[in-house]
Structure formats: structure tokens, C-alpha cells
Design a protein around this nucleic acid. Structure first.
Lengths: 277, 277
DNA sequence: CTAGATGGTTCCATTATGTGAAACTTGGTT
DNA sequence: AACCAAGTTTCACATAATGGAACCATCTAG
């Protein structure tokens, strides 16, 4: 099984400075997805006991990790949740894109994804599911492969050459389904087609039975901000049918891009803090 | 105006080790809520230029910050979003509590908050507003004072003595309204009452016209996990009326606590990653 | 109740790392 | 050309991180 997690492995932290190591530990703890004991962390860590211990202590005292004294386990700390809020607003397209995604999802009646590119992997920052009420964070924050998803290919297709090189170099080309593009050449061919027609398809390349249509979110300067996609089951829709939704998707992407660009020089709106208790 | 931001001021980072400083910078950048230039950060930073420069470089190369080469501004990086997701799931009660909060909100038709205690301050991790569709992250992540909010007092009331000491020591006792408890003694008296009856009131102590009822979320071992509250305007409801909702709140808190406890020894559910595109 | 694990914490000489004043480059402005 | 501010690099120096080893618990087995 390939390493599908996009997070830097602990090995990459070598010689990366103290903060790099600390962050590697943080990532590692985050990776478990549950509280973990010190010993457990140590088992999977390249750092010697004492070093790891201090790193964890530092992170804990900084509020990035939290030690539950009862069970002696570490979990991610509240400071991270606070940062999460800020990250949401500052970095991601999600808050800007949200209303557009809502509208799209309502209009099309299908699942809609918003994604960004992160070190060669696709980071889903928001998701809207028309039928079921959204458990918002259930999907957002997850990462997936770029070479075999609609959003991934849509973004890659419009990357400047050097960035594209980087990104491709990071693809595992693992075959998930019979349709998965498993080599550089076929991917490049698909990317060219995507560039031509302006949207990407995922023809059950990642998961059998799941198809999707995706378009990139581009600034006027052609910078890739992210991508949005509609997903459906091949049982319910054909690729061609999905293709007909392209104009709607493209319109939404355009609006998001425009608003995102406007964000460039924001007039720091002093959103009043209201009605807490 | 008191410093209402819960984030550690840069000053606290003095002698805190390299990671502490780096995290202080991260917090600072997060605090702007928008992309910032290096010079701007430097202006508000206690660190000398070169040091700050390297710290920012480190954070950037680590993916915690992101430098937009076009505008020369720094924003929070994607790695943070990823960590945020994990933090949300691991550390906070939000994902567990969400359905219960939904139900509560629907049942009572009032605004419901879910909060946790963070270094003497209240961290709102989720919010449900019955009438308007929730813009989920708009409020979550915000921090507020503990001594004059329902959730804050509800949690403090059930803290072990030493922790309570710590927490009280961190209160500013700033008078927001005529009803604000502005000294240790009256706070302690209120906490005793809260302990007795099992729920806390906020009688316009933080914001005029806003009242609320809160109950703590406690484990069987009486550990404070968080608190939930219903908020109303004094125009629309009386404190007594709110008080009648206590059983419903308590029931929800109990359910949340039970589920949260179950999380203690999770059987690492291999949640399948579905329907992406 | 020992003997031996195993998980967690502390010491401390060594050295890698981070520090920051100052110098330098770049690009824009008068 | 002269100036100024933002951003970047340098380098002698000192702080802060390192990690091997020793040290405390608990806990388990004999």
C-alpha cells in the first residue's frame, strides 16, 4: 500500500531545524486521529527518546498538544482549533466559495467538492451534498491523490510547467481502478485535453462507479487557486450528462475567482462579535 | 480596551525556545485574518528583523505559512488546514456533539453554543442557530472571557481546585455590563450556586440584553470536557423561562459526555474514504 | 517479595542551531 | 542621482537543542 497521506513523513524532518522536527511530531500525532501514549509515538518516531520527549513537552506547553493526565495520552491541542478558524478565513477559498457552492449544489442536485492543491495532493476544503444534510468537517481537510481525481487533474492542467513537474513527480500512479491513469504520458495527454476543453473528467479513475466533472478556479493571471467538482455515480449519470453541467461549474468558478481576487487587498472588515453566552 | 484575544501575545514567547517563537509568529499572522506583508509582521513583532525573517522562512518552508509571490504576502498554509481538520476530530467535542446540538437547537428553537476551556478563556467550538442557517465557522474558533459567560462559569464551577485557581488567576474581571461579576469573591459565590443547581446563568453579564443558560459536559470521573448553552435575548425570554430548559440541556450534555468517553479507547475505525472526485 | 520488564522523566557534557547587528541588494520615489 | 524602505544575506557569538545514559516509577511474572 502506498503512502497516501500527504503529510511529510518524519524522515523529511532530518536537518529541518527544531521547528521542523516539532511540526513533524505534531503531524505524526495528528495522523493517529486519536489520543496516543508517549511510547506509541516513540515507536514510530525517528527521534531518540529524550529528544522526542522534549519536543512533545514543548508542543504541550505551547498548547499545540494536550496531555490528558488521566490516560496519559496526547491529543492535538486547542490552540490548533483556534488557528483552524483563522486558517479557514485566511488561506482557503472555502468561506468565499461557500455561497457559490451552496448554489451550485442546490442547482445541480449533486455532491459538490471544493479542493486546493497541496504538495502534489488534493486537499478537500469543503463539500456540499445536496440530498443529505452536510456533516461539514467530515470530508473537509481530507487529502486525496491528484492524478486520478477530477479536481486534481483540473488544477494540474493549468499549472505552470515547473510547478507541474513538481506535482507530477509526487504522484504515486497507483492503480485504483481499471480506468486509473497509471503513467506520466497518459496523464499529460489527459491534461492537454483538459486544457483544451476547460474542464476535467474523472471517469471512475479513483473509485469504481464514481464519476465527476471538475473545473479549475483561476485568477485573471491564470494562477490556480483551486477547483470545484460535481460528483455522481455512473449508475445515475453518464459522463456526457455531467459534461453538460460544465457551463454552470465554470460560471461558479469564475465568480469565486473574482471574489477571491478582490480579497487581495481587503479592507479588514470589523465583523462584530455577537451574542455569545 | 482589554486584550480579548485568547492567543498568546508575542511577549510570552520570550525564552520559550525556538518552536515557541515560531508558533508565536504563526499566531500573529493568523491574527490578522488576511494575508500580510513581511514588514507588517515585523512592525508588530518583538523579534529582530533577521530572526523574524528566518522564523517566517522556516514556517513557510514547512507549509505552515504560504508566501504569495505575486503580492509578497504571507498567509496561513495548507498544512495548518490539514492539522486543523485532525484537531477538530481528535481534540474537540464538536464532531461528537454536533448531532446533539442540532437536536437541542431544533427542540428549543434557540441559539446553542458548544465551548471548551482554553487557558482561562472560553473557546467556542461550535454554534447552532435555529432560525438562520449556520455559517459554521463564523463563530467557532472565537474566544471569549470565562468569568462572565454561561459556558465559562459552568465549566469553572466543576474544575478541581488547583485548576480553578489557575483559571481565576487568568480572568481580567473587566466590567462589560452592570451585571458583570467583577471580583473573585462574587464569582466564587456564583460558582458555588452553579455547582449546587447544576447549571449556570449568564444574566446579561457579558452583553446587555443577552442571557443564557449553560451546563457543563462532565465525564463520569467529573472531568470537565466542555459546556453547552442556550442563548436568548432578555426581551424574549426570562431567566426563569430559560431555567426550565435545564433538563433538556443536561440530557444533551450527558449524552455528549457518554459518547466522548467512549472515544477514549477507540477501535481505530477504518473510515473508508468515499465518493471523492 | 524479588527480578525483570516497560513507560515515563531527568541529567549533563557536547555541539548543532538559532541569534541579531550590520551590511547589502533591490525597487520604487522625489 | 540621491534617497528611502522592503527584503535578504553574512558571520562571530551564545543560546538552546541533542541524546546517551541513568533514574524513577508501575506493572508482571516467577
Amino acid at each position: 500500500m502506498p503512502d497516501r497521506s500527504g503529510r511529510p513523513s518524519a524522515g523529511e524532518a532530518r536537518g529541518a531545524g527544531t521547528v521542523g522536527k516539532a511540526l513533524a511530531v505534531l503531524d505524526q500525532v495528528a495522523g493517529y486521529g486519536r489520543p496516543v501514549r508517549f511510547a506509541e509515538v516513540q515507536r514510530d518516531s525517528p527521534f531518540p527518546k529524550a529528544t522526542l520527549y522534549r519536543l512533545i513537552q514543548t508542543l504541550t506547553s505551547q498548547g499545540m498538544l494536550r496531555l490528558d493526565p488521566e490516560s496519559g495520552t496526547y491529543a492535538l491541542g486547542v490552540r490548533l482549533v483556534r488557528l483552524a478558524h483563522a486558517a479557514w478565513h485566511t488561506t482557503s477559498l472555502a468561506p468565499i466559495a461557500r455561497p457559490h457552492i451552496d448554489a451550485l449544489s442546490a442547482e445541480l442536485g449533486e455532491t459538490v467538492h471544493l479542493a486546493q492543491l497541496d504538495h502534489g495532493q488534493v486537499l478537500y476544503v469543503d463539500k456540499r451534498n445536496a440530498t443529505v444534510p452536510v456533516r461539514m468537517y467530515s470530508q473537509a481537510g481530507k487529502v486525496g491523490p491528484a492524478y486520478c481525481t477530477g479536481v486534481g487533474k483540473a488544477m494540474m492542467a493549468f499549472l505552470p510547467a515547473p510547478d507541474l513537474e513538481d506535482t507530477i513527480a509526487q504522484q504515486s500512479f497507483h492503480r485504483f481502478t481499471p480506468n486509473t491513469l497509471t503513467d506520466r504520458a497518459s496523464l499529460l495527454r489527459d491534461l492537454a485535453a483538459i486544457r483544451d476543453r476547460g474542464h476535467a473528467f474523472d471517469d471512475e479513475e479513483h473509485e469504481a462507479g464514481i464519476i465527476c466533472l471538475a473545473v479549475p478556479i483561476l485568477t485573471d493571471g491564470r494562477q490556480v487557486l483551486g477547483a470545484i467538482s460535481v460528483t455522481a455515480t455512473s449508475a445515475r449519470r453518464s459522463l456526457d450528462e455531467l459534461g453538460e453541467l460544465a457551463p454552470a461549474l465554470r460560471a461558479a468558478a469564475r465568480k469565486i475567482a473574482t471574489e477571491a481576487s478582490a480579497w487581495r487587498f481587503p479592507d479588514r472588515a470589523a465583523e462584530p462579535l455577537a451574542t455569545t453566552g
